[in-house]
Write a protein that binds this DNA or RNA. Structure first.
Lengths: 182, 182
DNA sequence: GTGGTCATGTAAGTGGTTACATGATTTG
DNA sequence: CAAATCATGTAACCACTTACATGACCAC
């Protein structure tokens, strides 16, 4: 039950249409809660029906017409309630760890290449986060809201840092192959 | 498509019945790929039908009768294929990060208590991993298989370490409330 | 006015969760 | 033999994914 609240948060930050939301998810909220445009359109419909958001007045709300939404007071209240409510962390699901565990049984043949590829992907993500930090959080001027957003970004940076280090460590365990990263 | 391969891995490590698998998931593979007994029974049925595993000969395979499975050569081959195949990392989904982002908009009221609770949960998980490491990976005798399994456990330990540190850091951002952890 | 892109949407399928049902075995 | 627990399973539901459909707008 997190997607509707992710959407409420995004809409409170800025009223948007479905596609605008999709794009913003791709480069912001989606970093820790991804969603496709189909999920978003479906959820926007439910949220409107539940009276938590409403479509901003526009022309004819037909297919192909842009339709922007804003959050109603009931939506803000629901988001505040959800934010404060106790929730258990979801159990983690990581395919690469599973594959290494499998490799301990059926052999490591062929997995090094993908470990290297994942390392590159995580390095790219880390660089992206660092760029966002440099752009949006210059030292010395964090307000109250910014402090929280910076904290979230920091989690992303530290997680990607962890993965890159762990993957390098993992690759070092395959000494039988030449390691270009040295 | 990871659950069947998680099951194949577990069955290769040791042929088991559905409930035995469920228990082993709860304290081993489930640390990075959780599954309920319903998922496991359903998947065992599919894997058997696909000819990747087979039920070990027993009495009457009826309801309430224990039924153990073992992996067939085709199952081992499929697991090796899957392990070596390139796979993109799944986008991450973390509710707590989402909630902090929401809190930046609707206020932090009430979230500190759950941050503390999560900190305790992650500390407990970390302690459990450390205990497993102490028990199963005493220094100085890692074989090839063990090295991989140790590497996976290390990821768990380092991830929980990250979360506990991050949560402590987050809690330090709520100076308006007394912090018992000091 | 055709082709490409923007924008919203439908439909089908998959994987995971929750609730419940039922037979077998053990314990008092 | 009644109650508790072990073990397997069914059914309904929900969230997410993938593929596709369709209308509006813009550039040439």
């Amino acid at each position: 039950m997190s997607l509707p609240h992710a959407i409420l948060t995004a809409l409170l930050e800025k009223p948007s249409s479905g596609l605008e939301l999709t794009r913003r998810f791709d480069r912001s909220i989606g970093y820790f809660w991804s969603a496709t445009h189909q999920q978003i359109y479906r959820e926007l419909g439910k949220l409107e029906e539940a009276g938590l958001i409403r479509a901003l007045p526009a022309g004819q709300p037909a297919r192909g017409q842009k339709k922007a939404y804003e959050v109603l007071p009931a939506g803000r209240a629901e988001l505040a309630r959800w934010t404060a409510a106790a929730q258990d962390p979801r159990p983690m699901r990581d395919t690469m760890l599973l594959r290494l565990r499998a490799a301990a049984v059926v052999g490591t043949e062929g997995i090094e290449a993908d470990l290297r590829r994942h390392l590159e992907l995580h390095e790219a993500q880390l660089a992206e986060y660092r760029e966002i930090e440099r752009r949006d959080f210059p030292p010395g001027r964090d307000g109250a809201e910014d402090r929280l957003r910076h904290l979230v970004l920091r989690a992303g940076i530290d997680l990607e840092t962890f993965w890159t280090e762990w993957l390098r460590h993992a690759l070092a365990d395959f000494p039988e192959l030449p390691d270009p990263a040295a």
